[in-house]
Amino acid sequence: MLIALKEVSKTYKMGEVSVKALDQTSFMIDKGECVAIVGPSGSGKTTLLDIIGCLSRPTSGDYLLQGQAVQDLSDAELARTRNKKIGFIFQTFHLLGRNTALVNVSLPLFYAGHAREERLGRAETALSTVGLADRIHHRPNQLSGGQQQRVAIARALVNDPEIILADEPTGNLDSKSGQEIMKLLLDLNKKGQTLILITHDRDLAERTERTLTIKDGRIVDDIRR
C-alpha cells in the first residue's frame, strides 16, 4: 500500500472559529494507480492535497506513506519526504522566472544534495522525457503555457518520486495544450508512475481509472472504472 489515510481530520483556526476542512477521511491508494480527486471549491480538495503532499500534518488520524506515519515526522523529515517521494505539479506552474528551464528542473536535486553535474545531467534527461530537449536554456517567459507546464512536469519527475501530485494541471492552459499535458501525465502513469490528480473538472476525472469525490471534507464517492 502506497498511501493509507485513516480517519484523517484537519482543522484550521480562523480567529475564534475553527473550520473543519477534512472530517475523518479514510482511503487507500496503491502503487501505480491513477486517481482523480474531485470536488467543488471549498470541499477540502486543497487540504487533502497538502496532507498527501506532506505540506502539512493532519490534526488527527493517521497518514501512512509507504508505511511511514507522516504525522510523526519532524519538519526537516517532512521536507526530505517531499523532496524524495512527491513530485508537485501546480495550476500556475510555479517556475522561478529568473532561472532557465534546466535550473528550474534541477532544483529538487539541489535540495537533495546532489552535485552540480549530476543535477544538470538528470534535469536534461527529464526535460527530454517531456519533449523539451531543445528548450533547456529558455526562461519561463520565453516558453508557452504548455511548455512551462512540461518544465514543471520534468521538475516533478527529476528526483524519481513515488507520487506525482498534480493540482489542476490544465487549469491555466488552452484546451489543446491541456489535452497534451493530460496525455503526457497519463502516459507517465502507464509506465508505472502513481498519479494523483486534483481537479474540479469532471471531464478530466473521467479519464482516470479511479475517481474519489470529496464534499465537505469527506469522501462521498469512490468509483473505479
Binding site: L55, A79, R80, R82, N83, K84, H94, L107, Y111, R155
Partner: peptide, 16 residues
C-alpha cells in the same frame, strides 16, 4: 513568499 513555498514543496528545509 510563493517562491519560498515552492522551494519548500520541492524539499527545501528551513535551514536551506
Amino acid at each position: 513568499t510563493a517562491e519560498i513555498g515552492l522551494r519548500k514543496a520541492l524539499g527545501a528545509s528551513r535551514r536551506a
